[in-house]
């Protein structure tokens, strides 16, 4: 039996040890915003925030998250009330098919929280572990750049 808090809601579930956190979120909790791409930690689509740190949900078992606070893309904002980074993605056309977007957003949030991101180079390096098969990287970099600076100064981060 594990207890986790996901986007502020507490859950208790019986899980098999081999259940990956990504599959736990999607299949047990119905939170399908977290996407599963490569299942080997390479593509970044399943990135979620675990106890304040971005992690690959395909490289973590649900049992390891016992007691943890998890943020997923569903916790960022709603369709009516997008979070500022989501708004920036919309404004800068930073998504095409949308498959990589949840991972890009959660990675972006952790990068914005942890690094000054003073240059585009830093943003690119920070995103280098997230693959976009539409290859729309330029717009994703622009979207993140557009909120750097305002992110902490204006309390854009709701968490």
């Amino acid at each position: 039996m594990i207890k986790v808090t996901v986007n502020g809601t507490a859950y208790e579930r019986e899980v098999e040890p081999r259940l990956l956190l990504a599959d736990f979120l999607r299949h047990e909790l119905g939170l399908t915003g977290t996407h599963v791409g490569c299942e080997q930690g390479v593509c970044g689509a399943c990135t979620v925030i675990l106890n304040g740190d971005s992690v690959r949900a395909c490289l973590c078992f649900a049992v390891q998250a016992d007691g943890a606070e998890i943020e997923t893309v569903e916790g960022l904002g709603t369709v009516e009330n997008l979070n500022p980074l989501q708004q920036a993605f919309q404004k800068h056309h930073a998504l095409q098919c949308g498959f990589c977007t949840p991972g890009m957003l959660m990675t972006g949030v952790d990068l914005l929280r942890k690094y000054p991101l003073a240059t585009d180079g830093e943003i690119r390096e920070g995103l280098s572990g997230n693959l976009c098969r539409c290859t729309g990287y330029e717009h994703i970099v622009q979207a993140i750049r557009s909120v750097v600076g305002d992110w902490n100064k204006h309390g854009m981060d709701s968490k």
């Binding site: 992690v55 690959r56 973590c60 990068l111 572990g129």
Partner: peptide
Amino acid sequence: VAHLAIRNR
């Protein structure tokens, strides 16, 4: 060393 999400774990 790897990417932020890997370095975090």
